[in-house]
Design a protein around this nucleic acid. Structure first.
Lengths: 120, 120
DNA sequence: AATTCGTGTCAGAAAATATAACATTGGTTT
DNA sequence: AAACCAATGTTATATTTTCTGACACGAATT
């Protein structure tokens, strides 16, 4: 259900329009479009953006995040758990994280439901 | 939480922009405004609009609906049950309804939660 | 020093929304 | 029947929001 304009998503995620559009360009999200080509976001999109933000803050780069979600039919949400990674992929990602002294995956995996704080 | 632009509210309620603006003018709802003066609706606003639509279809007029919700601090939502009406008020409203052969209050009172069908 | 990545910023165009005025439709009243 | 009024449609014009694309910049990498 795409119901949110980018301005609201900016507030909800504390991301700039530039960042949001960039993540779309990098295929991390695929918001819907109105007839007039305006982006419209679903709550899932917002969830995804919060997750992306979290990963970035943990030191992952966009390519790494994309890898995490690269599955045939499964964009960035629509799945309870991020896909299973090959050993090689996993080691690669972890190495990436180490370089930025971020503790390995934790918070991002619990992002599910974070949006709830916006709705009483 | 005002998060929805009028275009989405139109889809959600199947009302025209004209109708929505008119109901605001008639003080049935008070959507928030952006800095640039664009209306932004909360889910409560949408709920209220669905309720308004229902009442209108039952034959009530805007004045009657406004009466229903006329309370100091309580606009149209923010209350589990529409306010208690004086006998005079109630009789007046019922008379109004009779004229339009609508069965007395029923569906509108159960509108709460109707929005859920939009969110899985 | 030259690249790359993620983001900021700016310009110009197009879409969405705002207000205001006038028109129409249906029922009510005189 | 004529005049009214409430609710909504329609149209015009103004303003805001969003879009794309280009260029800039700082921090890493190579």
């Amino acid at each position: 259900m795409p119901i949110l304009p980018i301005s609201i998503v900016m507030q909800l995620t504390d991301l700039t329009a530039r960042q949001i559009r960039y993540y779309e360009e990098q295929q991390l999200i695929s918001p819907a479009r109105t007839e007039g080509n305006k982006r419209m976001f679903s709550l899932n999109d917002v969830d995804a953006l919060l997750e992306i933000k979290d990963y970035l803050e943990q030191g992952l780069n966009v390519a790494g995040i994309r890898k995490l979600y690269e599955t045939k039919e499964t964009p960035i949400n629509d799945q309870a758990e991020p896909k299973t990674l090959s050993d090689a992929e996993l080691r690669s990602l972890l190495r990436e994280e180490m370089k930025h002294q971020a503790r390995p995956f934790d918070r991002a995996f619990h992002r599910q439901g974070d949006l709830s704080r916006f709705f009483k």
